[in-house]
Simulated assay, not measured.
Amino acid sequence: MLARPLIDGALTRRTLLAQGSLGVLASAFAPRMAFARAASDRRFVFIIQRGAADGLGTIAATGDPAFAGARGDLAADFATGTKLDTIFTLHPAMAQAAALYGQGQALFAHAVASPYRDRSHFDGQNVLETGGAGAYQVKDGWLNRLLTLLPADEARAIAISATVPLALRGRHEVASYAPSSLPAASDDLLMRVGQLYGGDPQLHALWSEAMQTRMLTSDLTADNGRNAAATGQLAARLLQPADGARVAMIETGGWDTHAGQRGRLAAQLKGLDAMVGALKAGLGPLWADTLVLVATEFGRTVAVNGTGGTDHGTGAAAMLFGGGVKGGRVLADWPGLATTQLYEARDLRPTTGLDALIAGAVAEHFAVDPGRALPTLFPGGGSGRPSDGLLRA
């Protein structure tokens, strides 16, 4: 796997400021790429929710008779959520997602899961990112293998991440946008360094930008969602140029809500909502040909634990956004929330393969044969046939 960080420290930031950041970012793709024809306008963004996001806390099955009793205090927020249909209600923190749903540009899939059935974050994320049937069975990532299905002048990807995520690792070279890494530096130390630079207009501006970049890969609760919106704006800028990236991956963390879930999850969802909204606004007309996938490694328990949180589960929810999405609906072969209907008497039972959903969506978006997309992206065998009818013809 080859990866070339586009931003790695203040010196490179200085160069970008001097030369014009977007021009430098776009030219980073150029040395090994030949553009024989104009690239299409299709873009794809994968937002990974690391930590096992609670699907029932995002898209609540308020129409299920067992929902209120099983979720207790976690059900309260949905009294003001957007009613999606007779069964499901969207968390009120996702106001922009609700608007997209009303415009037919958001589709939600529930009770989905990868082939993984244990509850380790590391193993679950490995399966999600590699597309294998089990952890550590495949060495490269499904998003990198997607590039092999695209025309050469569209097979360009970028990671909005401190390091290139596993999903993007493989034989295709990708770019990354990452801040300088100072893992041992505390927030207090960084603040004091910022104060030292306060009297130097140039260094203070550079340091402020570096600190803003550092925050881009943190969880989504920081700064009331403004950093999440900045990440969406950044991704849009990197996807805009005609010779820029066509595929992007954004890492988000903070979804492991073992305690105090109600407030924390609401803040996380507000950040995610801001990120998606910023992507749409930043892409402008390109949004019509953009597909955004949001997915997590597994879901969380149906019942609330003793600290107001939920534990590692199985079935989860996934989201598709974009101008071409055949949205305004929730796809779910709903298994029910009564104890006898749960997976191992504790988790939402998965009824749809996440791999089938992803393969189907990507195949439709990039006009790739679904029968080729599924085994390429998910060599572990996939879950049946790829989903279809996810995008408008």
Rank of each mutant, 00 (worst) to 15 (best):
S161I: 03
L182A: 13
R226T: 14
L143V: 10
L238D: 00
S218T: 15
G199V: 15
V127C: 05
G225Y: 10
A157C: 09
E173H: 04
A185C: 05
P241L: 15
H121P: 01
L147A: 02
P165W: 05
L190S: 11
A236E: 01
A162F: 14
G141I: 09
N126Q: 00
A235I: 09
R246C: 10
Q202A: 13
M191L: 13
Y197S: 06
L216R: 00
V127A: 01
W142Q: 10
V247P: 00
E209K: 09
A236K: 05
P151L: 03
E251K: 12
L189E: 10
H204D: 13
A205Y: 06
E129H: 10
A248R: 03
R226D: 08
T217V: 14
L143Q: 14
Q233C: 15
A155M: 00
A184T: 09
R145L: 02
T163D: 13
D200E: 11
G253V: 15
V174S: 09
Y197R: 02
G134N: 05
S176C: 11
A229V: 00
G244M: 07
L189D: 12
S181G: 09
M211S: 00
S186N: 07
P241I: 15
R171K: 13
T231V: 09
Q125L: 10
S181K: 13
A235H: 04
L238V: 03
T217F: 05
P179Q: 08
R192H: 06
N227H: 08
V164I: 07
S208D: 13
T217W: 06
D219I: 13
W207Y: 12
R145Y: 02
V138Q: 02
D219G: 01
A162Q: 14
